[in-house]
């Protein structure tokens, strides 16, 4: 599904990402973990070619997205940035906007139908006709995710989707992502700071240190040694009510 090979990115001659490589299967959720400023957001932007990598390849279903026109990339990759600017648009229209890569002149009945479906799947009927400039951060984040879903992408890219949300909204957003991934065989790449939340929802992990992949794999990579190496914090890993928990011990 997604195959990243030797991805490099420089910012003003400074190497930000070096030799990034990882794979992701259909329907899997992958979380990119690493400390602030390590290049997690940069990596997501590179995958979506909002930033142009210096070299490497990003293969989505056999095609290198670096060789595709922007509009074709938008049909394959749905990007949910950390922030979306609220304007005076109803949630319905803001979500409908996600059909942009698929339209020629204007929105058709089919686009409306897909939008309605996503709104109904996410239980957002109540929000649909409210203006997004009057919404809370959690509601706006839902709109943002819904917009990426109506894009009908093969891969979802989410940049810290939970960072400004309360507990319930954090779970809500991630539940939706996992559900879509399982049902529609869409893969998701998420950046997150909360390791425990990541463990709860991810199938795979990429740990980034100094612009390189430090560890990549399933749950086995979440070890106290790896976390200490990446974050510089001593932790212990325990279990609470069946959920694996990472607890700092310093």
């Amino acid at each position: 599904m997604l195959k990243i090979r030797e991805l490099q990115f420089d910012y003003k001659k400074r190497e930000v990402l070096k030799e990034i490589e990882f794979d992701l299967n259909p329907g899997e959720v992958l979380t990119i973990l690493g400390p602030n400023g390590v290049g997690k957001t940069t990596l997501l932007r590179c995958i979506n070619t909002i930033l142009t990598p210096k070299s490497g390849s990003i293969i989505v279903e056999g095609e290198n997205v670096l060789e595709l026109p922007r509009i074709e990339i938008a049909k394959r990759l749905g990007y949910v940035p950390q922030n979306t600017e609220p304007s005076r648009l109803t949630a319905f229209d803001a979500i409908l906007l996600g059909r942009k890569p698929h339209i020629e002149w204007g929105m058709k009945e089919k686009d409306m139908k897909i939008t309605r479906q996503v709104i109904s799947d996410m239980g957002m009927e109540e929000l649909a006709l409210r203006y997004i400039d009057e919404m809370s951060g959690g509601e706006l984040q839902k709109v943002s995710l819904a917009r990426a879903l109506v894009q009908q992408p093969r891969i979802l890219l989410l940049d810290e989707p939970t960072s400004s949300l309360d507990l319930k909204n954090q779970l809500g957003i991630l539940n939706t992502v996992v559900e879509v991934a399982r049902k529609e065989h869409v893969s998701a790449v998420i950046t997150m700071h909360d390791i425990n939340l990541a463990i709860r929802y991810s199938d795979r992990y990429v740990l980034i240190k100094d612009g390189e992949v430090f560890a990549h794999g399933k749950e086995e990579v979440i070890t106290p040694e790896n976390i200490e190496a990446v974050y510089g914090v001593k932790v212990t890993i325990g279990e609470v009510s069946g959920y694996k928990m990472v607890v700092p011990v310093e």
Partner: peptide, 12 residues
Amino acid sequence: DAGDEVARGLGV
């Protein structure tokens, strides 16, 4: 209007 990043992500 939704932000340059959103627009780029939508193929604009």
